[in-house]
Write a protein that binds this DNA or RNA. Structure first.
Lengths: 192, 192
DNA sequence: GTCTATAATATGATAGAC
DNA sequence: GTCTATCATATTATAGAC
């Protein structure tokens, strides 16, 4: 339905969410002001409220839904792609992870939002996203012929290593820990 | 020197820093207001400014100096204690880490402050603390008879694993990842 | 749908009494 | 050294024009 009085969106939902995400992941929830958020999108504050009536909470939640989709598509999707061999899937997903964090330059939005403060607001979404990640890698382990339990352990390990190495890379101001971790994740699945 | 007009401190430096640290590590830099900080200490905002004239930046920096000392004493100190065998040192330090993060309940202040925003203000201190941690564990590896390079790799790995597992534990609302990681760190040094 | 203007509140910071 | 009171600014949020 299109009503003549409606004006066209200045910014698409996708572009909006990309801008919002980039602010939140670098500044965190408390560190991102509505002006920061608006500036990153090209819209004004009041326009953001039109798109997200409940303000910052709704914005952050929408960004997390967007991240959830991204993980489903790029992590889970690639890891369960039956047209590719396990080795190829692993290679693809490691590239995706490398891109996502820009080689280790960027921190993870999951990390930025996993503050004790924010857990009540976003805990459920954060947990869902991590659960998806782990499920994807568990599937990979099984494809490699590992047991369910072993696969789940390794899957959880990938998440821990990525999150931890991003922090160490950031604090030590070198990409090496993250890059070494990507290599290590490869090795974790190549013991056989 | 004691001047008669001086009034006694209501709160000792140690208690002050403990309270401030607990707020900052759970709320982060942007999420900790001066009222939050004051409330955690029993002092009023204005009194905090008397102790820390430059405000929140100085408070956070002081807390990081306090953390630096803690790590030197409890991590580096224990790991380089020549009166104990390497195995005993490792056991002691893992207990200290378990206590520090309250079994995985608490997040790490290093993580809370490693936001892109804060790096200019606190990056140097964060880097120093992580460097100390890594140096301590590197020393342990050497005591176990490992090469310098191997020791450094394992040391960095302990830091990555602790940081990463704390995030996953928090988001998944289970202490298991952190607890399993403490066991894993033990195993890392017991390959021989 | 987007904007300017503005309200209401929170926050960082200071002044001055005790 | 600590407090109450206050200021200046930033922040979340809304009203209303276009």
């Amino acid at each position: 339905m299109y009503i003549y009085s409606m004006r066209p969106q200045k910014v698409t939902d996708q572009n909006l969410l990309e801008g919002l995400m980039s602010v939140i992941r670098s500044k965190g929830y408390d560190g991102s002001s509505l002006n920061d958020l608006a500036n990153s999108t090209g819209l004004k504050k009041a326009s953001l409220y039109h798109r997200f009536p409940k303000g910052k909470k709704e914005i952050t939640s929408a960004v997390l839904m967007y991240v959830e989709q991204w993980v489903e598509l790029n992590i889970v999707g690639e890891l369960t792609d039956r047209t590719q061999k396990p080795n190829e899937r692993l290679k693809s997903v490691i590239e995706s992870i490398d891109d996502l964090y820009e080689g280790g330059e960027k921190i993870c939005i999951l990390r930025a939002l996993t503050m004790e403060n924010n857990m009540e607001l976003f805990g459920k979404q954060l947990k869902n996203i991590m659960t998806s990640w782990i499920a994807g890698f568990t599937n990979l382990g099984i494809s490699f012929g590992l047991s369910e339990k072993e696969s789940k352990n390794k899957a959880e390990q990938t998440l821990i290593l990525v999150q931890g190495s991003l922090i160490v890379s950031k604090a030590m101001s070198t990409l090496e820990p993250f890059q070494k971790t990507l290599v290590l994740i490869n090795e974790i699945y190549k013991i056989k």
